[in-house]
Design a protein around this nucleic acid. Structure first.
Length: 331
RNA sequence: GGACAGGUGGCUGAGCGGUCAAAAGCAGCAGACUGUAAAUCUGCCGGCCCAUGCGGUCUACGGAGGUUCGAAUCCUCCCCUGUCCA
């Protein structure tokens, strides 16, 4: 069935001589991106490439909304479960890994379907990152210590001296971004704004199709609320205590993520289960909102109103994609 | 039935004669984002108007009266809520 799909041969042909198509599904959590990705993968000989910053971690399944293996319908999923929870993973790491996957998919003539929710990861893959130094834990620790001693705006005054242009674009209270900017200036011995201005290397060899899911907010909220309750019923607390038991410390990075933080608090009895659920629902709604703010700025997105698990929307999406690929073919 | 305590903006909660459309937090809305991004940070947040000024106006601190130049703040009555005593 897959082999007889007209598109699959098309994708293969294209991959030899021209840019390969690449499909990116964007939208807020609980909008049905995974379901849509799966449906479209079946129609196009596609494979899923995750761009979610929590789903890359092993052992973090329920709370991150990872599609269980038995529900993947045999479709390969990449960059899921690729890092241990006690390891840091950054946008730069993501970009390298994803490029590797993309190369492999192209060789096999498979359509990469990007599914996830981390806007920065998607952008760092598609548009690239500036060519700067990676993070330095030692430097950052020192900067944080100085900030703690000298007050909330200290780092900003430091950055003004190193790179006034960059300082003007970062709020004095945004310690996280200030630290990165200072770190880059110090390590590269050049202002970060200068490095930004030199551009970044975007993804080459692919023709990108961006499909945005824009569900009605009221219904999205209902889905989020339900999904969080299901996570707790499905064993989120057990998943967290398992991770905690295995790594003995609570410094696991994914535990800072939405949902996991509240689950930890519930396990510590700082929060009742009901309260943890409530807070997670609220935080998830806020996250969905932030995602929409980010994705609205994305260029060249074709937006579909509704949810990705809706067969009708799936049909239209596949249709849109096929047309797009065909019209992109050279005459 | 009696004794206290209390009723403040969507919620929690400060204010206890003017500088109060009312602190603060939450929620909500809008936004930013180049290696922590499910992170981090910002703005707005009663209505209307002028047109953005520490501008005008209307409605607001349980209800109705009153005191006062002036009341969320004081007084009276009433209605609710909580705790305790019967």
């Amino acid at each position: 069935m897959l082999a007889s799909s007209p598109l699959s041969s098309l994708v293969v042909v294209e991959s030899i001589e021209h840019d390969c198509p690449l499909l990116a599904i964007i939208g807020p959590t609980a909008a049905g991106k995974s379901a849509l990705g799966l449906a479209m993968a079946e129609e196009t000989e596609g494979e899923i490439l995750n761009y979610d910053s929590v789903q890359v971690y092993r052992g973090f399944n329920i709370g991150s909304g990872k599609v269980p293996i038995e529900e993947r319908r045999g479709i390969p999923h990449h960059l899921l479960d690729v890092v241990d929870p006690d390891k840091a993973f950054t946008a730069g790491d993501y970009r390298r890994e994803a490029q590797r996957v993309l190369g492999a998919l192209r060789e096999r003539g498979r359509l990469p379907i990007l599914v996830g929710g981390t806007g920065l990861y998607l952008r760092s893959l598609l548009q690239g990152l500036f060519d700067g130094p990676p993070r330095s834990e030692a430097l950052r620790a020192r900067l944080r210590k100085m900030a703690a001693r000298h007050g909330r705006c200290f780092l900003h005054s430091v950055l003004i001296r190193l790179d006034a242009a960059s300082a003007s674009r970062i709020h004095p209270h945004d310690q996280q971004k200030l630290i990165r900017a200072i770190e880059v200036c110090l390590l590269a011995r050049r202002p970060i704004s200068l490095m930004f201005s030199q551009g970044r290397a975007g993804l080459e060899g692919f023709r990108v199709f961006k499909l945005g899911l824009s569900p009605p907010r009221r219904e999205l909220h209902e889905r989020i609320n339900r999904r969080v309750e299901e996570m707790y019923r499905g064993g989120l607390l057990e998943e967290v205590s398992l991770a905690l038991g295995r790594h003995d410390c609570a410094l696991l990075k994914p535990l800072e993520a939405l949902g996991y933080a509240q689950a930890c608090a519930a396990l510590r009895r700082d929060l009742s289960i009901e309260e943890a659920i409530r807070q997670t629902q609220t935080a998830t709604r806020q996250y969905a909102k932030r995602q929409m703010t980010w994705f609205r700025r994305e260029d060249d997105v074709t937006w579909f109103t509704g949810f990705g698990d809706d067969p009708e929307l799936q049909r239209r999406a596949v249709d849109w994609f096929r047309r797009g690929v065909v019209s992109a073919l050279p005459a």
